[in-house]
Structure formats: structure tokens, C-alpha cells
């Protein structure tokens, strides 16, 4: 022990003490939750139809939002990182706006644009019969709106710091631009891409404000786990705590697993 103490420098107290206080911010609420958990009733509470429906919907919405973010967000990040065009910084600000905007405001904006009487919602409804607000699709759209920026900001950062000479080398070997993106660019940023997808999924899984504003709170159709917690807090605290615990466990598992797998390299 003494040998180790001599060779390993003690971290400065001025950093360790505030770091510990910072940790408490995260640990205390979790401990509070665990302390109030009705462990014995957990199986029964979690098998109620409200919880099962909400869980199923949350998985669907978060995975759907992650998929949509990958399909549209990765190309958008590529364009922002690689194509120079006037107004690029404004576009970049617009894309990242949901990171700082209150989700309720985002939900309201979605409602005005995509609602039954909205600028896009009305023609969309007439053309396809699709109604987004207060539907399961609306939940996916709301979750995508708030979570896609996490993917864009991560992937754009990775693309900007990538050594572009490898892509040039691939081009001299006869690879078209699309082949270069598919076989060189994306594999080379795979760690950041995975990290971005994990963050996107986690944000979508926890989404509340935009969902309740745009999609409402209908059990089995738009009521995700966070919404179910919100409702249960009023009437049935034990259920609220049980659902909260599920969300903590699922999110923590995903983040820890992906962190160990991908974030070591970044």
C-alpha cells in the first residue's frame, strides 16, 4: 500500500470535493427512488396493462426515432460537415435548436405545422389520410424531433475531425463518392456513430414534453413510460416509482454497455 501511495499522486482536494458533491446530485435522487421502491409489489405493479402498454410504446417510439434519425440525420450531418453553402451556420443552429428549446415549445410547434389544420398537416391529411397528432406516429415524430440533434452533433463532429485523405485515397482506387461514404467514411466514424445513436435512443426513450403536447396521453396509443409516470404520480405513487425504476435500469444498462463497447476509442 505504501509503495502505491508513494508512486501514485493524490488527486488535489480542490477537485475531489466538488467532484463528490457533483456525484451526489446524481446519486441522491436515485437513492431516494430506491428507498421508496415497494420491492414486494414490483412484479404485480409492472404487469398491469398500463405499464405493459406504455413500455411497448416507449420501445417502439425510441427505436423508431433512432431509425429515422439515422436515415435522415446522418446525411444531414454529412452535408453540414462536408458541403460549403451560404447560410450553413444558420442551418446548423436550426438543426441543434431542439437541444435547448423547451420540449413543450417543440411539441406546440409540431402541432401548428403538422396538426389537422397545420400548414403541412392539412395537405398531408388530404393526400394520404395520415393524421399525426394524437397518434402513435405522432409519438415517433415528437421523439425524433427532440432526439435527432444528438446524432447530428456527434456525427458532424466525427466527420469534421476525420482525416479526409483516406477518402481521397479511396477515390483514386476507383470508388464512387457513394462507395467512399459507405465503405470508408461511415466505418471510420463507427465509434462516434454508435455513441450518437445511443444518445439519440436514450433521449427519445425519456421524451416527455413534446410528446404530451403533440401526441397527447392516450393509453395504448400515445402514452409512453414517462407519460405513464406523470399520470401515476397523481393517483398511484407505487406504480410511478416502479415505472421510474424500469426506466432507470433500461437506460443505465444501454448507456453502460455502449460506453464500454464504443466510447473507449473517442
Amino acid at each position: 500500500m505504501t509503495g502505491r501511495a508513494r508512486t501514485k499522486q493524490r488527486p488535489p482536494l480542490l477537485l475531489v470535493v466538488p467532484a463528490f458533491v457533483g456525484l451526489l446530485f446524481f446519486a441522491v435522487p436515485l437513492i431516494g427512488l430506491l428507498a421508496r421502491t415497494p420491492w414486494g409489489d414490483l412484479p404485480e405493479l409492472l404487469s398491469s396493462s398500463v405499464v405493459v402498454d406504455a413500455f411497448r410504446l416507449s420501445l417502439l417510439a425510441s427505436i423508431g426515432a433512432t431509425a429515422l434519425s439515422a436515415v435522415f440525420g446522418v446525411p444531414l450531418a454529412w452535408v453540414l460537415a462536408r458541403v460549403e453553402f451560404p447560410g450553413r451556420s444558420i442551418i446548423r443552429g436550426l438543426v441543434l435548436l431542439p437541444l435547448v428549446l423547451p420540449p413543450v415549445v417543440g411539441g406546440a410547434a409540431l402541432l401548428f405545422a403538422l396538426g389537422r389544420r397545420g400548414a403541412i398537416g392539412e395537405p398531408l391529411n388530404e393526400l394520404t389520410g395520415l393524421v399525426l397528432p394524437f397518434s402513435t406516429w405522432g409519438v415517433v415524430v415528437a421523439a425524433t424531433f427532440v432526439s435527432m440533434p444528438f446524432l447530428i452533433i456527434t456525427v458532424e463532429g466525427a466527420l469534421s475531425s476525420l482525416d479526409g485523405r483516406h477518402e481521397g485515397a479511396a477515390a483514386t482506387l476507383g470508388a464512387t463518392r457513394w462507395t467512399v461514404v459507405r465503405r470508408i467514411t461511415l466505418p471510420m466514424i463507427a465509434p462516434s456513430l454508435a455513441a450518437g445513436l445511443a444518445l439519440t435512443w436514450a433521449r427519445a426513450f425519456g421524451e416527455f414534453g413534446a410528446t404530451i403536447t403533440f401526441a397527447g396521453n392516450l393509453q395504448g396509443r400515445t402514452q409512453t413510460l414517462p407519460l405513464a409516470v406523470f399520470v401515476a404520480l397523481e393517483s398511484d405513487r407505487d406504480t410511478a416509482i416502479a415505472i421510474s425504476l424500469v426506466m432507470v435500469v433500461v437506460s443505465l444498462t444501454v448507456l453502460v454497455l455502449l460506453r464500454n463497447r464504443w466510447w473507449r476509442t473517442t
Binding site: R165, T172, R183
Partner: peptide
Amino acid sequence: PEKRRIGVVFQDYLLFPHLSALDNVAFG
């Protein structure tokens, strides 16, 4: 560049780090 048929050995080689030596060579 992809239509030029010019072979380049780059300074510090620029091998694709995520592909095996064989896949690097087979890439073109």
C-alpha cells in the same frame, strides 16, 4: 479521381484502418 486510373502510393500510405491488408488491396 475515381475515373482516372491512376495508382497512388501515398505518403504514410493511408491504408484504410478498418480493413484488413487483403481488403485494402481488394478495395480498388
